[in-house]
């Protein structure tokens, strides 16, 4: 079971990297301070993929069930995102 969770965690890292990369490439996500932070998003997308890839084959992660559940939840929520560009206005849209 621990081995399976371990692989699941590594896969989650790969998915996060892929998702950030996809959002960046498709221009669906507004990046704060675009010019300053762009490198960080590209770098983090690549690093997530490297971390996921490395840990899938080496199996050195703790493999904790709660971590897997929470990260899967946030990834599932990403599927509910509306098909348009996300802007800072979205963060203020609801109550105010």
């Amino acid at each position: 079971m621990s081995g399976l969770l371990n692989k699941a965690e590594a896969l989650i890292l790969l998915l996060i990297g892929g998702f950030i990369g996809y959002l960046f490439a498709s221009g669906r996500y507004y990046f704060y301070l675009t010019d300053q932070n762009r490198w960080l998003f590209i770098f983090s997308s690549g690093l997530f993929i490297v971390l996921g890839g490395y840990n899938i084959f080496n199996g050195r992660l703790a493999g904790k069930p709660l971590r897997v559940i929470l990260f899967l939840m946030i990834l599932l929520m990403a599927l509910l995102l509306p098909p348009r560009i996300i802007t800072p206005a979205d963060l203020l849209q609801s109550p105010f």
Binding site: L40, L47, F48, I74, M77, A78, I86, Q93, S94
Partner: peptide
Amino acid sequence: LQLFSLFSVSVFLEAAPFLLLGAL
């Protein structure tokens, strides 16, 4: 539900690269 997801994912995506940098 969509708004809840949008906000959760936005805050997470905004913070995740910085958290990763901190972890590194």
